Simulated assay, not measured.
Amino acid sequence: MTQRLLRTALAALMLSTPAMAQNADLAAISDYLNGIDTAEATFRQGNPDGSISSGVLKIDRPGLMRFDYAGPGAPVVISDGWWVAVVDRASNAEPQRYPLSATPLKLLLSDNIDLNGENMVRAVEERDGHTIVTAQDPDQPEIGTIRMVFSAEPVELREWAVTNEAGQTTFIVLDTLAYGVPMERRDFAIEWEALQR
């Protein structure tokens, strides 16, 4: 009887340890993301059509993000905290706008990120010294998922992939982020950017 109880206890410990480690990983990653004020990096982007883009990414949390794509007349993608807009520098057309709340990017730009929140994280993997977290908005799972890859020691965001409601996936691979970079508020103003064309 004692041996049976011991085996049961050991089995329970073996089952609970990964969950405990996972919760610790998610807490550390949440703390890291919440600690980002401003950051900047160059990036490479894999698009659903198989093409590759590159440029400079700026983040000013909460809510603000800017992708400056390389090349003459290349577009700019801006999150101003309410909208994510694509500004076509080669056209006088109005920027295409999408509510930030209806994109998985909101999970990166939220004021308070808690990856241990109920039903937010769909999967956690450990691979080659990286933690891979797949998350979604539990209130709007239909808007898609974001799959984030973090290095360890120190924890740092290295890449992410956004899969939208149509099943199309866009990959972003970052060079090392520079933190605490001074930002201009107008860099995240969609109307101001549209006037610069």
Rank of each mutant, 00 (worst) to 15 (best):
R186I: 13
T145K: 06
Q3F: 04
S51T: 14
R122S: 06
V155E: 05
S91K: 08
A102W: 04
T134W: 06
A178C: 02
D128F: 05
V56P: 00
L105R: 01
G144Q: 08
L5G: 06
R44M: 06
L177N: 03
W82R: 14
D175S: 14
D187M: 07
A194L: 04
G180A: 06
D175R: 08
S54K: 04
A178K: 15
A166H: 12
G129L: 05
L174W: 02
E156G: 13
D175Q: 15
G180E: 05
S53M: 03
F188R: 01
A152Y: 02
R44K: 13
E94A: 15
T176Q: 15
T103H: 07
R44L: 04
P154R: 14
S101E: 13
T145D: 11
A24M: 12
D139H: 10
R147F: 08
A12Y: 12
I59L: 15
D137G: 07
P104M: 03
P104C: 02
I113V: 15
I143A: 06
A19L: 15
P182A: 12
L177R: 08
V56W: 00
Q45R: 00
P72W: 05
V121D: 02
R122K: 09
G73C: 07
N34S: 03
T163C: 08
D25K: 09
S91N: 06
P154D: 12
A166I: 04
G46H: 01
M1Q: 12
S30W: 00
E156N: 11
D175K: 10
A41M: 01
M65K: 03
S53I: 00
N164Y: 03
R7S: 10
A19T: 14
L109Y: 01
D137K: 11
E126V: 06
M148C: 07
I59A: 04
A12V: 11
T176D: 13
D37P: 02
